[in-house]
């Protein structure tokens, strides 16, 4: 059997594929702020050093990090309706991605926050900064700067993970591809092309993050 590669099906549907890319970017770019917001909020709470909330955050992190994303998203999408919460596939995907990403980002950010030495905080106190100011300027921003590379590769990983949301019919690139496959039966060609598109997107995102870093985290801080 010599398999004849035929990319005409792919070429004929380039519009759908392009739209799929946009949907994937949309989904992941919406999930990223959710991730960051949850993680920063968790940092704030952790600063209080209060036992119950610390334990809660730790438990959340452990549960999310030690179960597969596929199971998490199924749980959100198929499980929650039984307690009366029905989420749209896209909303479920954004929430699942946001929560999943947050668990990893909390760990990353925690390492950054812990790297801020006690002396700096004391210096901030000595300068008469308010606690919120200390958190924002002395703890959070340097921490973000330290962990920026790790955090952004986590974000790119989040974009790649969004492909799993296709299994609950969220509109994104892999789902578009699967629908095309069902029509054209050219599974290999389509998935091959889609993998290439993901590669381009992750490359593009890493360039974008590098640019953001140059603008907002250049040292000395503006």
């Amino acid at each position: 059997m010599a398999y004849a590669f035929d990319f005409t099906a792919v070429v004929a549907h380039w519009r759908e594929l392009l739209k799929g890319c946009l949907l994937t970017l949309q989904l992941s770019l919406l999930a990223m702020p959710v991730t960051l917001a949850i993680a920063v909020a968790a940092m704030l709470v952790l600063q209080l050093r209060e036992t119950i909330s610390t334990w809660l955050i730790g438990t959340f992190v452990e549960i999310v990090r030690n179960t597969p994303f596929l199971v998490q998203i199924f749980f959100l999408y198929f499980g929650l309706p039984s307690i009366g919460v029905r989420l749209d596939p896209n909303v479920a995907a954004i929430i699942a991605l946001g929560l999943n990403g947050a668990a990893y980002t909390i760990e990353i950010l925690r390492a950054g926050v812990e790297a801020v030495s006690r002396g700096q905080i004391e210096a901030g106190l000595a300068l008469g900064l308010r606690p919120t100011q200390i958190f924002r300027y002395v703890v959070l921003k340097p921490a973000l700067r330290t962990v920026y590379p790790a955090m952004t590769s986590q974000f790119i990983f989040l974009m790649l993970t969004s492909s799993i949301a296709s299994s609950i019919t969220a509109a994104e690139l892999t789902h578009v591809g699967a629908e095309l496959e069902a029509v054209t039966f050219r599974s290999f060609e389509i998935y091959f092309t889609i993998a290439g598109l993901y590669l381009v997107m992750s490359f593009g995102l890493s360039k974008l993050f590098a640019l953001i870093r140059r603008i907002s985290f250049s040292y000395p801080a503006r």
């Binding site: 790649l160 799993i164 892999t174 290999f188 993901y198 992750s202």
Partner: peptide, 24 residues
């Protein structure tokens, strides 16, 4: 490394799984 880190695991599975079949 870049190829495998820059694409979703799901797609890697699809491609290797179906691609091997095509290699006869």
């Amino acid at each position: 490394i870049e190829i495998f880190r820059g694409t979703p695991l799901l797609l890697q599975l699809f491609i290797v799984y179906y691609g091997i079949g095509l290699l006869n």
